[in-house]
Nucleic acid binder design. Sequence first.
DNA 1: GTCTATATCCAGATAGAC
DNA 2: GTCTATCTGGATATAGAC
Lengths: 199, 199
Amino acid sequence: MSETRARATTERGAAATEQVMQAALRLFTRQGYFNTSIPDIVRESAVSTGSIYHRFRDKEGIARSLYDSLVERMETAFSDIESRHQSAHDRCRAVIALLFRLTEEEPELMRFMLFSRHREFIPELAPVCSSRPFVQMREMVRAGMAAGEIRTLEPIVAAASVFGGALRLIQLRLDGILDKPLPDYLEEIWACAWRSVAE
Amino acid sequence: MSETRARATTERGAAATEQVMQAALRLFTRQGYFNTSIPDIVRESAVSTGSIYHRFRDKEGIARSLYDSLVERMETAFSDIESRHQSAHDRCRAVIALLFRLTEEEPELMRFMLFSRHREFIPELAPVCSSRPFVQMREMVRAGMAAGEIRTLEPIVAAASVFGGALRLIQLRLDGILDKPLPDYLEEIWACAWRSVAE
DNA sequence: GTCTATATCCAGATAGAC
DNA sequence: GTCTATCTGGATATAGAC
């Protein structure tokens, strides 16, 4: 378990930690981190101020735990995709399909991961784009280029081209501009994405 | 002049308004809106608390003025592009070239326009993606589709595909992941973008 | 219109009983 | 470990002289 994660020794303790993190995720993504007070979290989680401060060192600690656990979850999911698919084509498509599905099923997760300004409330953090999952995505593209599946380009440009359109659709969906669920757009956007870089 | 903009009747007044807005833009994009206090803005702008509150009704008012003026500026620039170019190909390329240039010359402007969570501090605002400039971008693509330049797709998917990669590169550049200036990547990303949707 | 001095409020954080 | 009651700082915003 990562160091920044709040310890949860007892069963009740684990439940409380979980309640706080879920409440915080909801509130942070609905109102923003700075518009969310500790009293808000107390209300929404039904865990007292004292317990919250006991488990998470401070408000920032809640955000850090959240960030770490979600990044870890994405990492695992992407590693799984890497092991199940061999080609860049299949891997990248699976990543986009996963992100689309997650956006529908857990919009708060995606909002927090992709569209929060983490560094404004967790100062020591590196930009999200340099977090493991994003590195994994770029690595899939790089490997595909080495294998001759993807045409020779600046690797970062190729990655932006493969994933840029899909990420944009995710943002539009989260902002309420798209009315159909994202998976409905998967075929079309993937055809575009792949055509943009395929050898 | 838009209603939300602070009035600036005298010459000195106009200068003060400008100083406050520039200071706020710097601070909001460097530290975030909520990490920026009025005393910070007083220091950075060399305009007193009293004057600031006289010109802008409150802290949020500064952000609103900033937002309005920057949106207006983008609108004008895009309309200019529309009048100078006829085809979707040339228009969209010009938009990306402009955004790339602006990102290098005025990174704070781009950071504020594209990557601030405006709605967290200006509650009544619509999502940026539904602001005029974004609508103009989508409209350029839609017209290209009607003209047969761009293959038939969900219009929003086509727009995401044309601009998604470039917007992604802008974000990476602002986050310090890219070391070369964006215009160096223009040819490559544009080739990808256009290939993804060209008829 | 501009400035300084100041009021008010409420957030984050802690103390200490249980 | 959990809870309630409380402290404290600093932020937004105002008052009122100039």
